[in-house]
Amino acid sequence: MTEEELTSQIIDKKAYKTEIARNYTKFLSKYPEIFSDLINGSNFDFALYDSIETYDKESPVDIFNVYRNGNGIEIKPGRAVDSDLELALSLDAVKKLIQTKTKVDYAQLLGLFYDNPDEEKGWIDFVLHKRTQTLINMGYGKFAQTAGILKDDDDI
């Protein structure tokens, strides 16, 4: 399947607790190709936090999950049943991410929030729920690279 053929679907749009989560799902649904490296059946959470403290307490203000099916992605409210990992994002980060105009800009900003997390300006993190090796085999390493999270600069 080529990238262009991927579809996206937002399930149960009314079930989100926050407007920002709804907007983020709309944003992600525009770029299902971001998830093209993941194998079918991959499923992970996007958890939105209003502070580092709530992140430490694992108490997100809103959460949804992205499921990679045969055709593309399904975005569903709540946690995944058997989540592969959690991508944690501060609300400030999400506000800025959804304003990006292209998937390249989105990836760059996501990478910046991972590389230089800032409690005020925005941050992202992720928590692995499965073994690193399993996640690599599911395509998450490549996904993280495409999404701008993992990078290995050509020159130091």
């Binding site: 692995l128 073994r131 690193t132 090796q133 993992l150 130091i156």
Partner: peptide, 23 residues
């Protein structure tokens, strides 16, 4: 400073994914 970034990234990546060593 540009090398210190590498120095920190290598250790942070190693810790972040340290269950990889289970093999």
């Amino acid at each position: 400073i540009k090398y210190s970034e590498w120095e920190l990234n290598i250790v942070m990546n190693g810790f972040k994914f340290c269950d990889w060593y289970y093999q």
